[in-house]
Computed example of a mutant assay.
Amino acid sequence: MKIKNQILTRINQKPIVYDTFYNDNKKQKPLVIFCHGYKGFKDWGTWDLVANNFAKQNLFFVKFNFSHNGGTANQPIDFPDLDAFAENNYTKELQDLDDILNHFTSDQSIYKNNIDTNNITLIGHSRGGGISIIKASEDHRITKLITWASVCAFGKRTSTTGDLEQWKQDGVKYVLNSRTKQNMPHNFQFYLDYINNKDRLDIENCCKRLTIPHLIIHGTKDPSVSFEEAKLLKLWSPKNTLIALPETNHVFNAKHPWTENYLPEALEVVTKKSIAFIN
């Protein structure tokens, strides 16, 4: 069963749009929550096909848009709301993830008969990998962690660094989205949020605090997040497995839009390895 574009409303906060993929057999099954990356969204490219594969293996798969990713409830694909994007930051994404977790583990959840709340896996791609690592290090509900092409640090990312004086003076800086050709705004609050929460957002320390199994998957030819970052995650995380995929890029050779009804070979490997790790 696939239910798209459901809305999680919150008091004094932007809503979160999410999808669920699962076999409605009224049997409790592992909950898998997927976090997209920077300039990403839940409907990007192959993510629906990936979700279907997890559901076929009797896993309850959830993917969602971070509330300030630039999408809206009416238009969850791409970035119609750049004002929201400008106000995004790491701690907002951590709060979004916490609210999604609370929603699906609640006794009031309409899905409670289909979810084993004692078996929860986070999957994060790219920046979403960093968010997932931090969340897994501080939330005892998470039982397994999977990161795909994950970053190993936030402090050196384009969205966090740059000409700080100019950024502060202007109040905003822009990063080009090469696909949509939009200049994506980052208000200076993004940097302040990082600095004010630097200890919490230290991915290395969060990795070292992990007590759960962690699967790291990364392409050796990733031009966006170097494979060296995966090797550092491997070094820091005490209970982990690193799978290196040769000749594979940041999105495991997928693209947006994706019009085929099958996954690229590399992403199929990622999906199968991840499902096996959960099961």
Score class of each variant (00 low, 15 high):
Lys4Pro: 02
Gln6Tyr: 09
Gln6Phe: 06
Ile7Arg: 10
Leu8Glu: 08
Ile11Thr: 12
Lys14Ser: 12
Phe21Val: 10
Asn23Glu: 11
Asn25Arg: 13
Gln28Leu: 07
Cys35Trp: 07
His36Arg: 12
Gly37Cys: 09
Thr46Asn: 05
Ala51Gln: 06
Ala55Thr: 01
Phe61Tyr: 14
Val62Cys: 08
Val62Trp: 06
Gly71Arg: 14
Gln75Gly: 07
Ile77Asn: 05
Asp83Gln: 03
Ala84Lys: 05
Ala86Trp: 04
Glu87Asn: 05
Asn88Glu: 10
Asn89Trp: 13
Asp96Arg: 11
Leu97Ile: 11
Asp99Glu: 15
Ile100Asp: 05
Ile100Asn: 13
Asn102Leu: 15
Asn113Trp: 04
Asp116Arg: 07
Ile123Pro: 02
His125Ile: 07
Ser126His: 07
Arg127Ile: 13
Gly128Glu: 04
Gly128Ser: 07
Ser132Cys: 15
Ile134Lys: 10
Arg141Cys: 01
Ala149Met: 08
Cys152Met: 11
Asp163Gly: 12
Tyr174Ala: 09
Val175Asp: 08
Leu176Tyr: 15
Lys181Trp: 12
Asn197Trp: 08
Asp199Ser: 15
Asp202Cys: 11
Asp202Ser: 14
Glu204Trp: 06
Asn205Met: 08
Cys207Val: 04
Lys221Phe: 03
Lys221Met: 02
Glu228Leu: 06
Leu235Arg: 10
Ser237Val: 01
Asn240Tyr: 00
Ala254Met: 00
Asn261Met: 08
Tyr262Ser: 05
Lys273Pro: 03
